[in-house]
Amino acid sequence: MAQNRQPLKIGVLGYLLVFGLAVVPLLTGSPASMAYAWSFLQMLALVLSLNLITGFTGYVNFGHIAFYGVGAYAVAYLTTTTRIDPYLFIPFAAIVPAAIAYAIGRPLLSIRGPYFAITTLGLGEAVRVIIVNIPQFNYSEGLPIAAYFRYNVFNSYIAMYITVVALFLTTLLLRRTRYGAMLEAIREDEDLAESMGVNTRKAKLAAYVLSAAAAGVIGGLTAITHVYAHPGFFSINLNVSVLASLLMGGGGTLLGPLVGASIFYFIADALLIRFPYLHLVIFGAVVMMITLAMPRGLSFILYRYPKISQRIADV
């Protein structure tokens, strides 16, 4: 992975471009473009948060959505009980999922490969089932919070913007620090990393907790923007979409989540509008072709041209 440690160029550039473009809706103040850009930023944030665990350590996580949902419910539940500004509860949207991740992370992360993936596949559903059996959370109906605060599109947009920037900086940091290199070593060969003195357990757990906290915050912000927390947050389809975006873009990189989220968001959207009946058939075919043509993710296309990649890479 020597070429991965080149000075950061194109990845950072890509994000700076996106952050620049994402300021435009704020300046024009158009709620239309803000709502559209918000959904994109949310997708990007989810992909970046999943990248922390799945991208860096290679643990394919189908249960990311559990933390996203828990974050949403944490904010909504506290808002409905206290009736004060839901943004105050965003820290809880990080703390509660992080605590759960810490509690279950140790045994869970001792499972590897596809077994980890399958176990986490059940996690989101299990949390969902627990929540819909709890009266305080209104069973299957969820917690609408529109009545408790005044929704403001600016606040919601700025909050998501800050979240994405923070996740970008975290990823950047991981790409540049020894800790990030440890996680990458786990991805490449966990046993080897362990034998070389990496405390893999601690490293994995930290990444898992961090990623859970990030997912929780995104969930909390989404609940505020949707003015509603409901069992639909634990949607395995969303988890698979986020995972697909990450893998299509290229995991463990900086550029990968950006590329993946853009493709998933814009292509899926364009197909949805053009082909109301066939969009998923076509999208399925597109995903298959991408995996066959670019198995390490689209951002790795750069490495096909070593001369260029050495100058501009760290994707």
Partner: peptide, 27 residues
């Protein structure tokens, strides 16, 4: 080709196939 892929990438391949199949059935 699929067998030679990283396990997580082959999962993605089958995810695409599943979208394709179930929506073809729907149509």
């Amino acid at each position: 080709k699929v067998v030679s892929l990283d396990p997580s990438t082959s999962v993605l391949f089958f995810f695409g196939l599943s979208l394709l199949l179930s929506n073809t059935i729907l149509n």
